[in-house]
């Protein structure tokens, strides 16, 4: 049997390759109504455009939805700080992580770059949080605060000078607390 490394390099050896190849009938293409032998097809441009309109139509819900997830994120953060058992802490971490991730996805979808930036940063940091370290709490709180500020000021895109100021708050919180606490 070849090793993975040998397989990737395509080297031969005395050992049997034990690689099987399955060529399958293209059932998806048959389901489109096209002949299996026909050249490639396409999806109606108008249908694709209508699908993109769904994204635009749901943009009106952005503010309400982000508000809802920010509140969930707050609750998760409170839950972590009040957690007693390891299971509760783990659950809180997971909730905080997913809330931040959802905000990131939503913000990315609608061009709220600054919110996306902070949400991604919080999501990535959420995996490392040790709530017993006060400095870690400062970092999370800094993220939560600037995300609320970004939301309340309705900053879209990169946000200019105001955004730089908010980024600096978080950057300093991390610089002064995370690295020095390790």
């Amino acid at each position: 049997m070849a090793t993975d490394d040998e397989e990737q390099r395509g080297q031969t050896s005395d050992r049997a390759p034990q690689v099987e190849i399955f060529h399958r009938v293209n059932k998806l293409k048959k389901k489109t109504g096209a002949s299996p032998d026909a050249p490639g097809g396409y999806i109606d441009d108008r249908a694709v455009e209508q699908a993109q309109q769904v994204v635009k139509a749901m943009e009106k819900d952005y503010k309400v939805e982000v508000l809802r997830v920010l509140q969930e994120m707050d609750e998760a953060w409170q839950f972590i700080q009040n957690a007693v058992t390891p299971d509760e802490t783990a659950q809180g971490h997971q909730d905080l992580y997913h809330s931040a991730n959802h905000i990131k996805d939503l913000a990315a979808m609608y061009g709220y770059d600054l919110m996306q930036h902070f949400a991604r940063s919080l999501r990535d940091f959420a995996e490392k949080i040790d709530v017993d370290k006060p400095k870690h709490r400062v970092i999370v709180q800094a993220h939560v605060d600037v995300m609320w500020m970004t939301y309340n000021k309705d900053i879209k895109g990169q946000g200019g000078a105001a955004a730089d100021e908010l980024k600096e708050i978080v950057a300093q919180a991390i610089e002064q607390n995370f690295w020095k606490s390790e």
């Binding site: 034990q18 399955f22 998806l28 097809g41 999806i43 990315a108």
Partner: peptide, 28 residues
């Protein structure tokens, strides 16, 4: 890769329909 758009989604669907790659069964 997110964020999802209609163009990305339709391209992915099309690619799966038009380019069904053979399946490989290897030890790993």
């Amino acid at each position: 890769v997110k964020p999802v758009s209609a163009e990305k989604l339709s391209k992915r669907m099309l690619y799966v329909i038009d380019n069904p790659r053979p399946f490989i069964k290897a030890p790993s």
